[in-house]
Amino acid sequence: MRPRHERSLTQIKFNAEGDLLFSCSKDHIINVWFSHNGERLGTYDGHNGTVWTLDVDSQSKYLVSGSADNELRLWNVSNGKCLFVWEFPTAVKRVAFSDDDERVVCITEQRMGHQGAIRVFKINRDGDGTDQSREPEHMFHPVGSKATVCAFTYTPNLILTGHESGKVAVFDVTTGTEVASNERAHMDTVTDLQLAPDRSYFLTSSKDKTARIHDTKTLRVLKTFSTETPLNSAALAPNKPYVLLGGGQEAMQVTTTSLRQGKFETRFWHKVLEEEVGRVKGHFGPINTIAVHPTGTSYASGGEDGYVRVHHFDESYFRARPYGDLEIDD
């Protein structure tokens, strides 16, 4: 199944049930698809620039999106209506809901004399959603390397960030202080950050050609997956010990290489053994974003080629015994 956008994908996300898949792209449009058959359910129109990022709450009631038009938007998932717009001096590069759906964190870019900022907005869930506060509940400027990705941890008020320098950090949003950091988490820009369901550990991908699992509390690197291509996205497979990695050379260098050398495959690595176990081909350009269905039955990848590819795992994937004879209770 290959639903598509007019331009390259920037982020894709399943909702909590996994029946819907949201995608945003450089074509300014956000799409929502039925994940089981790839049929388009609708669009969220309104942004005037590349939509860099989106997230959907756990009830599939609200969607948030961030764009190069310097706006953060709140949408009604079911009817596609834009409920509220926050405006900033620079582009919004990453958004994420807290696990209780009460707050949204967003990163705005460092540009033209404006510092990069992290803001947390309290989402008013009463009424029709149009009555939101313009002012952030918290706002601070991370010092040093600019933040590229962020997410709420399992501790209220603590936010995980990944940075251009390769560091990962934890910030207390109430004070803006960095409470923990690992400067050497990666050697180059952190391109994606996805948390385990219980948020006790998280997975990052980086332009340094590695993906890593870190402990959320200590930021210690627990596992490293080294590839030979810059990575743009990494996702954890629920119920199976796999991580899915996607990337590829920058589009500018791709024209000079053959398809095989471009390495546009989703790579599956064994989370514990740190060994590559398989690859899935399909995209005609770098893979920019990967998401796994919350029940682990399928995964989706979004590419530079404008396609969203949804892959349903076949029987053999579920029969495989990645731990040998060991039985793992989920």
Rank of each mutant, 00 (worst) to 15 (best):
Val179Cys: 13
Leu195Tyr: 03
Asn182Gly: 06
Pro230Glu: 10
Lys217Ala: 14
Thr175Trp: 04
Ser200Met: 10
Phe202Asn: 02
Asp172Gly: 04
Thr177Phe: 07
Val243Met: 04
Ile159Trp: 02
Thr191Met: 13
Asn232Ser: 12
Thr218Gly: 09
Gly246Arg: 00
Leu231Gly: 07
Gly166Arg: 09
Lys167Ser: 15
Met187Ser: 15
Tyr242Arg: 08
Asp188Phe: 00
His214Asn: 07
Ala169Ser: 15
Asp208Asn: 07
Glu183Thr: 08
Met187Gly: 14
Lys217His: 12
Thr174Ile: 00
Thr174Glu: 13
Pro238Gly: 09
Leu195Ile: 02
Phe171Cys: 07
Thr210Asp: 10
Asn232Pro: 00
Thr218Met: 10
Pro230Ile: 10
Asn232Gln: 12
Thr210Leu: 00
Arg184Ile: 11
Thr229Trp: 02
Thr216Trp: 01
Val173Asp: 13
Val221Pro: 11
Val243Phe: 02
Glu164Ser: 13
Lys167Asn: 13
Pro241Arg: 09
Thr175Cys: 10
Lys223Ile: 04
Tyr242Gly: 06
Gly166Glu: 05
Pro197Gln: 09
Thr216Pro: 02
Arg212Glu: 04
Pro197Ile: 09
Thr216Val: 02
Asp188Lys: 09
Leu160Lys: 01
Glu164Thr: 13
Leu158Ile: 14
Leu245Met: 05
Phe202Val: 07
Lys240Asp: 10
His214Thr: 09
His163Glu: 13
Leu203Ala: 05
Leu160Gly: 01
Glu164Tyr: 12
Arg184Asp: 15
His214Ala: 11
Leu222Gln: 15
Ser200Cys: 10
Val173Tyr: 05
Ala185Ser: 13
Arg199Pro: 03
Tyr242Asn: 12
Leu231Ala: 09
Ala196Phe: 12
Thr224Tyr: 02
